[in-house]
Simulated assay, not measured.
Amino acid sequence: MREKYEQQLQDVQQRLIQLCELSIHAFDKSLGLLQSQDISKAWIIIEQDRFINRLEQQIQDDVQMIMTKQQPVATDLRRLLVIIRAASEMERIGDYAVSIAKETIRIGENQIVYDLQQLMVMRTLAVDMLQKMLQAFSEENLIEAKEIATLDDEIDQLYGDVLSGFEQERTWHEMHAAQLQSLSFICKYVERAADHATNLAEALFYLVQGKRYDFD
């Protein structure tokens, strides 16, 4: 029975890694398409989200099946609960990719009126956080998980700076208000993605040490 459980657990963990990779790729890609204003490929991001949703649901179903049949306790139960949480958090990253793609489509081919440099720095930091989190989960590396909170602070600072810049731009160019609103939403999605990475760092500490931590 234990051998069967270990195989089932390995299978669901592999699906979680696949979900993470798909979500991170879609998120990073969506921001690149904003920069290039590639509307046709932005539609592809939206269409492909169904694969991420389907994989997340499969992980949830698999974990529920394992919990029902194996009735795990202690560390095994924590591991399964963390897998459910991680799958949910990463599915949200895929949702942010879709939301960014939709805002990119709304902006269309109109010239972007604001310098995207700071937003792209946020993109780099957020993707780095998510990739580090995936690596930390794979290795159960608490040191690397804790470093993610530091990167989140940097993104929070940039987020505040970018929003201030948008407000100044809106004051001078009221006709660009709709585009600046779309860009503000996109910044919020990037900031939230970083928050999800921090949530996963906390979940990893719970998995390994059995204690709840708050890195905010």
Rank of each mutant, 00 (worst) to 15 (best):
Glu3Tyr: 02
Glu3Ala: 08
Glu3Ile: 08
Lys4Leu: 07
Tyr5Leu: 10
Gln7Cys: 00
Gln8Thr: 00
Gln10Ser: 07
Gln10Tyr: 02
Gln10Thr: 05
Asp11Gly: 00
Val12Cys: 02
Val12Ser: 01
Val12Asn: 01
Gln13Lys: 12
Gln13Gly: 06
Gln13His: 01
Gln13Cys: 05
Gln14Asp: 05
Gln14Cys: 00
Arg15His: 06
Arg15Glu: 09
Arg15Thr: 01
Leu16Ser: 04
Gln18Arg: 10
Gln18Tyr: 04
Leu19Gln: 06
Leu19Gly: 04
Cys20Lys: 09
Cys20Ala: 14
Cys20Ile: 03
Glu21Thr: 14
Glu21Tyr: 04
Ser23Gln: 05
Ser23Val: 08
Ser23Lys: 05
Ser23Pro: 07
Ile24Val: 15
Ile24Met: 09
His25Phe: 14
His25Ile: 05
His25Thr: 13
His25Cys: 04
Ala26Val: 02
Ala26His: 10
Ala26Met: 08
Ala26Tyr: 06
Phe27Leu: 15
Phe27Ile: 09
Asp28Glu: 15
Lys29Tyr: 12
Ser30Glu: 06
Ser30Ile: 03
Leu31Ser: 04
Leu31Cys: 10
Gly32Ile: 01
Gly32Pro: 00
Gly32Lys: 02
Gly32Asp: 13
Leu33Thr: 11
Leu33Gly: 11
Leu33Met: 12
Leu33Gln: 10
Leu34Met: 12
Leu34Ser: 02
Leu34Asp: 02
Ser36Ala: 14
Gln37Arg: 15
Gln37Asn: 12
Gln37Gly: 12
Asp38Met: 00
Asp38Leu: 00
Asp38Trp: 00
Ile39Glu: 14
Ile39Arg: 10
Ile39Pro: 04
Ile39Ala: 09
Ser40Gly: 01
Lys41Arg: 15
Lys41Phe: 10
Lys41Thr: 12
Ala42Trp: 06
Ile44Pro: 01
Ile45Val: 15
Ile45Thr: 09
Ile46Asn: 05
Glu47Phe: 02
Glu47Tyr: 03
Gln48Asn: 14
Gln48Asp: 15
Asp49Val: 02
Asp49Glu: 14
Arg50Thr: 13
Arg50Pro: 00
Phe51Trp: 03
Phe51Pro: 00
Phe51Gly: 01
Ile52Tyr: 04
Ile52Glu: 03
Asn53Pro: 04
Arg54Glu: 14
Arg54Ser: 13
Leu55Trp: 07
Leu55Thr: 11
Glu56Asp: 10
Glu56Ala: 14
Gln57Pro: 00
Gln57Cys: 01
Gln58Leu: 14
Gln58Tyr: 02
Gln58Arg: 13
Gln58Met: 12
Gln58Cys: 07
Ile59Ser: 08
Ile59Val: 13
Ile59Met: 10
Ile59Ala: 10
Gln60Ile: 07
Gln60His: 13
Gln60Asp: 15
Gln60Tyr: 13
Asp61Val: 00
Asp61Gln: 11
Asp62Pro: 03
Asp62Ile: 02
Asp62Met: 04
Val63Gly: 10
Gln64Ala: 11
Met65Val: 09
Ile66Val: 14
Ile66Ala: 08
Ile66Lys: 05
Ile66Pro: 07
Ile66Thr: 08
Met67Asn: 08
Thr68Glu: 06
Thr68Tyr: 07
Lys69Glu: 13
Lys69Ile: 12
Lys69Val: 13
Lys69Pro: 00
Gln70Arg: 11
Gln70Leu: 03
Gln71Tyr: 05
Gln71Cys: 10
Gln71Ser: 14
Pro72His: 08
Val73His: 06
Val73Gly: 02
Val73Gln: 12
Ala74Phe: 13
Ala74Ser: 15
Asp76Cys: 06
Asp76Val: 04
Asp76Trp: 05
Leu77Asn: 11
Leu77Phe: 15
Leu77His: 12
Arg78Lys: 14
Arg78Leu: 12
